[in-house]
Design a binder for these strands. Structure first.
Lengths: 216, 216
DNA sequence: ACAAAAGTGTTAACTTTACACCCATGT
DNA sequence: ACATGGGTGTAAAGTTAACACTTTTGT
């Protein structure tokens, strides 16, 4: 007879907000680690896949049915300390969906944290998140992933902010724009942002058919 | 009470041979899928991590204690069809270790297959392997991974063959060599290969301290 | 001597970097 | 009018791509 394990499935949900990568965290209401933050988890049930499991969490919080997900690493521990396995799913949520749902979820202690200023996290969640970030940082140089985060309009400076944060660099504004336009992946929407201060930025969207996948 | 699952841990073992990426497969001796090939699997035991589990497989086959491993995706299925979860570990084995152990394992139906000409595979293993390959292809552009595969000598044409296969491209020999040398990552061993025909190639090794990680 | 595979240098095309001023909006 | 952030062009430096003949070994 094979040993059986409970599976804790952890959902790492990312979004972007004004060019900053944000992660969805939940405040623990009980000990241990009361008041610390965690990524949402749920034990896997019978006849349920990881994606279905994550989908249920997302639905509970946000009442949405569709989100882009991918299975990522699993973690195992010496079984005396921790009596379950941990699997992880990475999700990317677009801005419109995130904004829609923040209004619907005021009864949860949920918050989107900038990945550059994380709060005190419980268990091994910070370690896992940092590991996931080193993966996601690279993914965000791929147009296929950016298209998930930006199904509609975005500005070039916004993309540049994201790019700079993910690659820990800075770039000249002219050069970044020139590069983006030269890739032949952007479509000018002829709209501009309505922003509080400064000149409004032009809004672009990704073209339908794009043959390349890397921006740098 | 949480539902518990048996965990099937699958070990995807890669090596290189003359610039070709090879994967370790095992021929099934029983139905279903008798005679088809699989990647080695083992159910996870109590108080055992994925790495320990994979280590046991590797030790069984090759009597070696150390191999580079990393946890990769987990797979889940609707639980009626398949009553376990599948986790995966990716391993990279260097040439010297592989050559040492092929002699020791003649009693197993093990074979290293070129990833470009895979045999008939059982269950979902081909699907998983192709997915893993799309991951590994990118990893092999990183010096950190190449150093695992080549802890000692290799030739530049060998590296070029690997690069070309992984990136589905061809490159001019002069340009490839020039690029490799310009990266300041190689050390000339002053040795050459003893090869059956043609001019012997110079043997290089990676420098100890390398600050960059991407070759292209 | 012939076949097989490796080693080598130069130039043109392309890509990336550096750099400073003006423009559109809100207060 | 001033503060804020966005948009724009050109030239130099660096990188990549194209290209053919010679060298070293085994048979």
């Amino acid at each position: 007879m094979n040993t059986k394990f409970p599976i804790q499935n952890l959902s790492i949900v990312f979004t972007v907000d004004k060019g900053k990568l944000k992660v969805l965290l939940l405040k623990r209401k009980e000990d241990p680690y009361k008041g610390y933050w965690v990524m949402p988890t749920k034990f896997l049930e019978k006849e349920e896949t990881f994606f279905e499991n994550t989908q249920k969490i997302i639905f509970d919080f946000f009442k949405i049915e569709h989100i882009f997900m991918e299975s990522w690493k699993a973690f195992s521990f010496p079984m005396e300390q921790q009596r379950y396995l941990q699997t992880t799913v990475i999700c990317y949520m677009d801005e419109a969906t995130r904004e829609y749902m923040t209004k619907e979820t005021e009864n949860y202690e949920l918050e989107w944290f900038d990945v550059q200023s994380l709060p005190k996290m419980a268990f091994n969640h910070e370690e896992i998140l940092l590991d996931a970030l080193s993966y996601v940082r690279i993914e965000l140089n791929h147009i296929s992933v950016l298209k998930v985060l930006y199904p509609s309009d975005f500005t070039i400076p916004e993309l540049q902010t994201l790019y700079e944060q993910m690659n820990e660099t800075t770039m000249d504004r002219r050069n970044f724009r020139k590069k983006m336009l030269s890739l032949d992946i952007l479509e000018d929407t002829l709209e501009t942002t309505m922003v509080s201060t400064g000149r409004p930025a032009k809004l672009y969207k990704f073209k339908e058919e794009i043959s390349i996948d890397k921006i740098f």
